Simulated scan of single mutants.
Amino acid sequence: MNLIFEEDDESIVMKNEAGEKLGEIAFSGDGDYFTVFHTGVNPDYRGQHLGDKLVLQTIEKAKREQRKIIPTCPFARKYFLEHPEYQEFVQGDLN
């Protein structure tokens, strides 16, 4: 499945080739960081690691914009706890 990511200042939406929304990650903030407060995946597509792909797209956004991420969303927070290799993109301590 080819994934399409549409990004703006408040979210990244993931769609399939048919334009069906598969999931989204939402954030807010400006300056040196942004806060991720929601990650959601269409129930029909869960179990395919699409939430992970959304977090990775957010990390790419942080890299491009030279910003840090505050993961208040439980899914994003768990992702960063399980993937310490991305800790450099997290603002503050996860513990």
Rank of each mutant, 00 (worst) to 15 (best):
Y33D: 10
E7M: 02
T58I: 09
E60S: 15
V55M: 06
R67Q: 15
D30W: 10
G92F: 03
G40E: 14
L81W: 00
Y86G: 00
A76P: 00
K61A: 02
F89T: 03
L22S: 10
E7C: 06
V36E: 05
I12D: 07
I25N: 04
G19E: 07
Y33V: 06
F34T: 06
Y86E: 07
H83E: 00
V36N: 03
P74V: 07
G92P: 01
V36G: 01
G29P: 09
H83D: 01
L54D: 00
Y79G: 01
D52N: 09
F37C: 00
E85K: 13
I69T: 01
E60P: 10
Q87V: 04
K78M: 12
G31Q: 08
N42Y: 12
D44R: 12
G29M: 04
Y79E: 08
M14E: 10
R77H: 09
P71Q: 08
K68P: 05
P74H: 03
V90R: 06
L81E: 07
D52M: 00
D9T: 08
G92Q: 01
S28K: 15
I59V: 14
T39Q: 06
L3F: 13
H83G: 02
D93K: 11
I4G: 03
V90N: 09
A18D: 15
F5T: 11
F37A: 00
R64D: 13
K61Y: 07
E82A: 14
A76D: 01
Y86S: 08
G31C: 08
G47K: 14
C73Y: 12
F75L: 00
G19M: 10
Y79W: 15
L22V: 11
V90T: 09
I70S: 06
P74W: 10
S11A: 14
L22I: 13
D32E: 10
G40A: 12
D9E: 12
G29C: 04
M1G: 12
K21Y: 05
E60T: 15
G51W: 01
F80I: 00
I70C: 05
S28N: 08
Q48W: 05
H38Q: 08
N95G: 10
I25Y: 02
R67G: 05
D8H: 09
S11E: 15
C73H: 10
F27A: 02
F5I: 04
E88C: 06
E10H: 13
P74M: 05
V41L: 03
V36C: 07
E60V: 14
C73F: 09
Q66S: 12
